[in-house]
Simulated scan of single mutants.
Amino acid sequence: MIFGIGTDVCDLRRIAATLERRGDRFAEKVLGPTELKVFQHRRAKVEARGLAYLGTRFSAKEAFSKAIGVGLHMPMTWRACEILNRPSGQPYLQLHGELAEWFDARQLRAQVTLSDESDYAVSFVVVETDTP
């Protein structure tokens, strides 16, 4: 049974402008510890790859917050929700702390997909439950 669905489109030019204005503090606010390492690694190789990574994660977290129906309010925080990749490249959600406890208590599971193209990133999240 579907608990919630969320989608988000992110303009990567806005992300770039925010990074320029606020520096790495923006990435450090949005990304969890594992994501931050990946972002720094990709950005060091090619700036655009780092930007796309940050934009897709920003978008996916927005979509996830919509799917669970709480927006960006507790227990949902930027850093408590990480979007990581399996070795195959498939994205998945890794939740931490109060958000993980909240999610598990409701016996929820989530699927996430994301993509980027030139100036935009898009994500889609489906949260499911076995209980009505």
Rank of each mutant, 00 (worst) to 15 (best):
residue 94 Q to I: 12
residue 83 I to K: 04
residue 105 A to R: 07
residue 97 G to D: 15
residue 88 S to F: 00
residue 100 A to W: 01
residue 81 C to R: 02
residue 82 E to G: 02
residue 101 E to C: 12
residue 98 E to T: 14
residue 95 L to H: 04
residue 77 T to F: 11
residue 84 L to T: 01
residue 96 H to I: 11
residue 105 A to M: 05
residue 97 G to H: 15
residue 82 E to Q: 10
residue 90 Q to W: 08
residue 80 A to V: 11
residue 86 R to E: 15
residue 82 E to H: 08
residue 91 P to F: 07
residue 94 Q to A: 11
residue 84 L to N: 04
residue 81 C to S: 07
residue 93 L to G: 01
residue 86 R to M: 11
residue 87 P to C: 06
residue 98 E to R: 08
residue 85 N to D: 09
residue 83 I to V: 13
residue 105 A to Q: 02
residue 92 Y to Q: 02
residue 91 P to K: 08
residue 99 L to W: 06
residue 79 R to F: 09
residue 94 Q to E: 12
residue 89 G to M: 02
residue 96 H to V: 13
residue 95 L to A: 05
residue 79 R to K: 15
residue 80 A to Q: 06
residue 92 Y to D: 06
residue 93 L to S: 09
residue 80 A to D: 09
residue 82 E to R: 04
residue 102 W to L: 10
residue 78 W to M: 08
residue 92 Y to V: 00
residue 84 L to I: 07
residue 84 L to D: 01
residue 103 F to I: 05
residue 89 G to T: 02
residue 90 Q to E: 15
residue 97 G to E: 15
residue 104 D to T: 15
residue 101 E to W: 06
residue 97 G to V: 04
residue 86 R to N: 03
residue 86 R to P: 01
residue 97 G to I: 09
residue 77 T to C: 08
residue 90 Q to K: 14
residue 96 H to R: 11
residue 93 L to K: 04
residue 95 L to T: 07
residue 100 A to T: 10
residue 105 A to V: 01
residue 104 D to E: 10
residue 103 F to K: 01
residue 97 G to T: 01
residue 89 G to L: 02
residue 80 A to M: 04
residue 93 L to E: 00
residue 79 R to Y: 09
residue 105 A to K: 00
residue 94 Q to K: 14
residue 92 Y to M: 04
residue 97 G to K: 15
residue 89 G to S: 08
residue 88 S to D: 11
residue 86 R to Q: 15
residue 103 F to S: 00
residue 99 L to C: 09
residue 91 P to Y: 02
residue 89 G to W: 01
residue 81 C to Y: 06
residue 101 E to A: 15
residue 89 G to V: 01
residue 81 C to E: 07
residue 104 D to Y: 03
residue 82 E to A: 06
residue 91 P to H: 00
residue 100 A to I: 03
residue 80 A to G: 10
residue 101 E to Q: 14
residue 93 L to M: 13
residue 84 L to H: 07
residue 80 A to W: 04
residue 76 M to S: 01
residue 81 C to W: 09
residue 105 A to T: 08
residue 102 W to H: 11
residue 80 A to I: 03
residue 97 G to W: 14
residue 98 E to F: 01
residue 102 W to E: 05
residue 105 A to P: 05
residue 104 D to I: 13
residue 103 F to Y: 06
residue 85 N to Q: 12
residue 93 L to R: 06
residue 100 A to Y: 04
residue 99 L to D: 03
residue 98 E to I: 08
residue 85 N to W: 07
residue 97 G to C: 15
residue 76 M to Y: 12
residue 105 A to Y: 08
residue 99 L to E: 03
residue 84 L to C: 07
residue 104 D to C: 10
residue 83 I to Y: 06
residue 80 A to N: 06
residue 87 P to M: 02
residue 81 C to F: 13
residue 91 P to Q: 05
residue 101 E to G: 05
residue 103 F to H: 00
residue 100 A to M: 13
residue 100 A to F: 00
residue 100 A to R: 14
residue 99 L to M: 11
residue 100 A to L: 13
residue 98 E to M: 03
residue 100 A to V: 12
residue 101 E to S: 14
residue 85 N to C: 12
residue 91 P to M: 08
